[in-house]
Write a protein that binds this DNA or RNA. Structure first.
Lengths: 224, 224
DNA sequence: CAACATAATTTTGTATACAAGATGCAATGG
DNA sequence: CCATTGCATCTTGTATACAAAATTATGTTG
């Protein structure tokens, strides 16, 4: 044995998951509009495979909540109504609060340092008013907190919800006041994390998510 | 229009979901032992269908976490390691806490009355030391709280996790002391619900789940 | 006899074919 | 001209056939 101690069978890429990845990208990039029907044969032709793996890929995305499948009527890109958004955010809040609580207990000093570095980069994007880059780092921070919580189940469920709301959040432009508030909340988060205060971090994250919902709702009602 | 105001297309049963239901029952009843491999063709023969719907059913159960699918190696009844259990319970705790918080705010008086009725029946089973019936009502109470929270997303995620741990909980016989403690927690829950104290109910539910994990862990370490 | 390499068999993955339900169009009648 | 009904077409659901990978069995060699 030449020093290999791998246990995981390296999770080879199978066709359906590869297809699901591609489709996810298409949906999140907006190439497939919410509500748009998805034709299995068309997809199969596009990727030069048969309908079988396409169907499996669609099922995967359905499990993630990115598409909705109606029997005998096929798949369509899921679109979250305001009511559904109002459902999803509190659940994300509960999960991220738990993530924060666990991360504050379990994160290594290196992980905290890495999150702080991300935080600083995000601040720079805030100052530059670069919303896209800001969002990108923002997500990385939330992902880093989840990773530091060391709970795979938690990560999976949180990511699933994040996937569902990502679309809605893309378009929801924040007001400047709200943006400032969000940055303030992130400052508090970092402080609580560095001080390793689980309860505080949990509370801040929950509030943060509540405010995010309010922001998205404002944007929705404004944009109609 | 003769007074019909149905919107939902009545969600017809399709073959894969029907199969998944059957399989779920088999797994939870213990007819399929954890870790046991599942042969697609054998299942197809057993239910007199082709492998195609069987495969879809297995994917559904995999999404629920009841079976695990390894590429090119097929499906097996999932078995939760102690580490995985230790992951799942805190997540359930966070979700049930949220459910309690929302239920305390939103439950109708009728719903609370119904939960109280369930609670009384559960007490009777406790007095009679009828663990199976106790468990059954217990689950109904948790389901009723989730229903009263009026958050479909929350219910889905909570149910998914509940499915994963159900197997483990079946065999985990409680100590008498722990059983008494659990009943006490349920008394507190009911009180908080009737008094409509969201924060209190959330806290109790979280503690309740933490204790459940401890119970299951004890049972696991004892049983080896 | 043990360990490895190799071949046979089984099992899963993908493609294709066929069946059943849903959608859309056109013809018919009011 | 509009509504309704029946038919044609398209789409999804299921079955079967074939390909690729994994498992098991077998034989060979040290």
């Amino acid at each position: 044995m030449s020093g290999t101690q791998e246990i995981e069978p390296l999770a080879r890429q199978t066709l359906p998951t590869a297809l699901a990845d591609r489709l996810r990208t298409l949906v999140l990039a907006g190439d497939l509009a919410p509500g748009a029907r998805i034709n299995e044969q068309a997809l199969a032709d596009r990727f030069a495979v048969s309908r079988t793996p396409v169907r499996e890929a669609l099922k995967l995305l359905a499990a993630e909540g990115l598409v909705s499948i109606t029997p005998h009527r096929g798949a369509a890109v899921a679109m979250l109504s305001e009511e559904e958004l109002a459902e999803v955010f509190p659940v994300m809040g509960a999960l991220e609060a738990l993530a924060g609580e666990l991360a504050a207990k379990r994160a290594t000093d290196d992980e905290i340092a890495a999150i702080e570095a991300l935080h600083q980069r995000m601040l720079a994007h805030y100052v530059a008013r670069d919303l896209t880059s800001y969002f990108a780092i923002n997500q990385q921070i939330h992902a880093a907190i989840l990773a530091a919580a060391r709970n795979e189940t938690l990560t999976q469920h949180a990511n699933q919800l994040a996937g569902r709301v990502r679309l809605a959040r893309y378009r929801a432009n924040m007001s400047d006041a709200r943006w400032q508030e969000a940055v303030g909340e992130h400052e508090e988060m970092l402080a609580a994390l560095k001080a390793r205060k689980p309860a505080a971090l949990a509370r801040i994250l929950k509030t943060h998510l509540d405010n995010k919902l309010a922001t998205v709702r404002e944007a929705l009602t404004a944009g109609r």
